[in-house]
Design a protein around this nucleic acid. Structure first.
Length: 275
DNA sequence: GTCTATGTTTGCGG
DNA sequence: TCCGCAAACATAGA
């Protein structure tokens, strides 16, 4: 569920909460498959005694830098969540990893569907360098987007969701960007005109920047929804124009929004504005 | 109770 | 290489 704006919000909250400088005094793993590439025991040995030196975001990864040159990459996938809580708080259902901190707090990983992953590595670049450009950085230009789309016999929406092309877009913001640009999600990528590519480039940056500003999108109220640290909800839902708004009027032309399936993903668009 | 959909990514097969 | 599909899981909602 968390896309770029949601992950950025979590990172910002972790920084505000003072995670940098904290020492990891121990780790407990309750679902071994959450830890990728090594056993839970090895993971515990290697993080114990390390101090957090930085927290940042790349695509949908939370990157926790540790002293000694290690990086902990956390990917939330669909339902992952991080909670920073007092050490004394009892473990909740679905808390699969607990990082014990020296300041009597715990950083806990909560994940109902168990798709999320922790990857501890000395070479984070091996994973992060495979990803496309950060859409809010200067490296993401209309030209760069055009190169991604060029000669591709593939629908534009699945391409936008491909993290090797652009890093950080997910289902919500892809639908929103395509609506803002007036492009049908099933359009073949290679057929986009230069003006459409420019509009799409601008739309991607606009919807993501707005999502960050609104502290992410929380859709419902259940445990599987987006919550940042300390259970903060995002308020970007009110800014959504099409996502999960099928049947409601398009904000531009009032024609009812439709929901179809594109590349096995629920897809929302306006049949009039996005021909 | 039963059935379907789900905001992500990977790996497989054509 | 490119692309579509199923799987990894649990729960909410119909």
């Amino acid at each position: 569920m968390p896309e770029l704006p949601e992950v950025q919000t979590i990172v910002n909250d972790l920084l505000t909460a003072g995670l940098v400088g904290a020492e990891i005094t121990g780790a407990r793993v309750f679902w071994p498959r959450t830890i990728s590439g090594m056993s839970p025991a090895a993971f515990g040995r290697r993080v114990k005694g390390r101090v957090v030196t930085g927290v940042w975001r790349r695509a949908k990864y939370i990157v926790v830098d540790l002293d000694g040159g290690l990086g902990l990459l956390i990917h939330l996938r669909m339902t992952g969540r991080l909670d920073l809580v007092p050490a004394r708080q009892p473990r909740a259902k679905h808390e699969h990893v607990i990082l014990e901190l020296g300041d009597q707090r715990h950083l806990r990983f909560h994940d109902t569907r168990k798709f999320g992953r922790f990857c501890l590595t000395a070479e984070p670049g091996k994973i992060l360098d495979r990803l496309g450009p950060e859409p809010l950085s200067a490296a993401f230009t209309a030209r760069r987007l055009a190169d991604c789309l060029k000669a591709r016999r593939r629908m534009v929406k699945p391409l936008l969701l491909d993290q090797r092309m652009i890093a950080g877009l997910g289902n919500i913001y892809a639908d929103e960007a395509l609506w803002a640009a007036g492009i049908h999600p099933g359009r073949m990528a290679g057929t986009l005109l230069p003006a459409e590519i420019k509009a799409l480039h601008r739309a991607i940056r606009q919807v993501l920047a707005q999502g960050v500003k609104n502290l992410g999108t929380t859709l419902g109220s259940g445990a599987g929804n987006f919550y940042s640290i300390a259970r903060h909800r995002g308020r970007n839902r009110d800014a959504l124009k099409v996502f999960r708004r099928d049947g409601l009027p398009c904000p531009r032309c009032a024609h009812p929004i439709r929901r179809i399936v594109v590349g096995q993903r629920g897809t929302h668009f306006c049949p009039v504005c996005q021909q």
